[in-house]
């Protein structure tokens, strides 16, 4: 059984400069393998090479070197495209069409049988929460609604593999929750989802595995829980109605206590203090636990650290490209 997506040494150089052509390496020998049925998070800060990778997979740009396969077929094969869906980053669609017309047009291009077309278009629009507005021209749509239409069009052919470039961008919290549940639903149907994001929380909520790219290079790959960089370093508790004497009892356990308001405190606990034991203790003093979160390195911290480690990756890559040209 072949992997759903196979990427081998994929590299992309962009020429820069008008007179003296140099090369900027946007993606540097990326290799990944994604199994069928996986939800795979492709993480990285802006400009890390996420969109470049997705465009390479969609054959919107052509690789400088390396290769990739989708469902066992080399990318660019028209038949492979029948079985994939793609949501571009900040999608834009013909603004003279209504949402309904756009999906119908794309369904025609995907050879969705006429009988099934109407039902599928209506069903998908319902699923992404476009109601009466489906009869409006897209020029009247907000960014978030366009994003929803974009997700709907990616699902028109009931794809086996889905590529979503920043699916959460432009969505309000409600929308983000909808998309999360949609992705999980797709996973349950056995589809492969490959999505890019620069928000760790999205990845935590959805992914089995992630890859982190920075400066065009693969920085880390694996299960989020296994990536040492992302294991928790402690806990953060927000407590309300905490009596002063109870606070004094808790103070030695905490690494840091911050007062937010009257009776409201943030307690930072080391990893050794398991919250399971402390929470009953707090509850017994009559105080209430408002929230509890693991404290760990954020994705942003991780990116920054990785980029500096890579010797400011992008510039290093450019020098290399220049060298290669000589």
């Amino acid at each position: 059984m072949f992997p759903a997506i196979l990427i081998e040494d994929l590299t992309k150089d962009y020429p820069v400069g008008f007179w003296r052509r140099r090369h900027y390496r946007a993606l540097d020998r990326l290799s990944l393998s994604i199994e069928a049925g996986e939800v795979f998070g492709f993480l990285g800060p802006n400009g890390a090479g996420k969109t470049t990778t997705l465009k390479l997979l969609m054959q919107l740009i052509f690789p400088t070197s390396g290769r990739a396969e989708i469902l066992g077929r080399p990318i660019g094969h028209v038949d492979a495209r029948r079985r994939i869906g793609y949501l571009p980053e900040n999608p834009y669609f013909y603004d003279y069409l209504t949402a309904e017309e756009l999906l119908t047009y794309f369904a025609q291009l995907l050879d969705v049988p006429t009988a099934a077309r109407r039902k599928r278009v209506a069903g998908l629009l319902d699923r992404v929460g476009i109601g009466r507005e489906r009869r409006f021209q897209l020029r009247k749509f907000s960014k978030g609604m366009i994003q929803r239409v974009g997700i709907a069009q990616a699902l028109l052919n009931e794809p086996d593999v889905l590529f979503l470039d920043e699916p959460m961008s432009g969505l309000d919290p409600l929308g983000r929750r909808d998309v999360r549940s949609l992705i999980l639903e797709l996973r349950d149907q056995g589809r492969t989802v490959f999505f890019s994001s620069h928000i760790l929380a999205d990845a935590e909520a959805l992914c089995g595995r992630v890859a982190v790219v920075a400066g065009g290079r693969l920085a880390a790959e694996g299960r989020l829980s296994e990536l040492a960089e992302f294991t928790a370093r402690g806990w953060e508790l927000v407590v309300a109605n905490l009596a002063p004497e109870a606070l004094e009892r808790l103070r030695p356990l905490a690494t840091r206590v911050t007062e937010i308001g009257t009776g409201r405190y943030t307690l930072e606990l080391p990893l050794t203090q398991a919250p399971e034991r402390i929470i009953p203790e707090i509850a017994s003093t009559g105080a209430t636990v408002v929230s509890m979160n693991p404290v760990r390195e954020t994705l942003e911290d991780f990116f920054i650290q990785r980029i500096t480690e890579a010797g400011t990756g992008a510039r290093g890559a450019m020098a290399e490209g220049e060298h290669a040209r000589r």
């Binding site: 969609m58 029948r82 994939i84 869906g85 999608p91 834009y92 995907l110």
Partner: peptide, 14 residues
């Protein structure tokens, strides 16, 4: 320019 071609060319069209 408007990048509407991205989603179009991901469809089975050469």
């Amino acid at each position: 320019e408007r990048r509407s071609i991205y989603s179009l060319l991901a469809k089975p069209i050469s």
